[in-house]
């Protein structure tokens, strides 16, 4: 499931990030925010009146805001199929 589809406040792990769909500078910033395969992630708030605004999510212990286009590049897995926390 994509991060954009992740229900709010449901803990998940990052499965895959499509780095190629992001600009070099945005990819670097996201890495610096701690976004990587295996990181724990949780969608917290969807902005915008019609749900088209940015998404605030927790990555590790940090809360970051990103646009939906970026969140769509992140594939996550949740619940039972998430398994134990990977030591990435």
């Amino acid at each position: 499931m994509r991060l954009t589809d992740l229900p709010l406040r449901q803990p998940a792990y990052v499965d895959l990030i499509d780095w190629t769909s992001l600009s070099t500078i945005d990819a670097q910033r996201l890495r610096e925010f701690g976004l990587c395969e295996g990181a724990s992630v949780e969608a917290l708030h969807h902005g915008g009146l019609l749900g088209r605004g940015p998404i605030a999510c927790r990555v590790g212990r940090m809360i970051i805001a990103m646009r939906r286009a970026h969140a769509a590049a992140v594939t996550v897995r949740t619940g039972l199929d998430a398994g134990p926390e990977p030591q990435a």
């Binding site: 600009s23 945005d26 925010f33 605030a56 809360i63 970051i64 805001a65 990103m66 646009r67 970026h70």
Partner: peptide, 16 residues
């Protein structure tokens, strides 16, 4: 944005 600074829209990445 439609004329003199035309181009793809940027991104929004911030730590809260």
């Amino acid at each position: 944005r439609l004329t003199v600074t035309k181009g793809a829209s940027g991104s929004f990445l911030m730590e809260m």
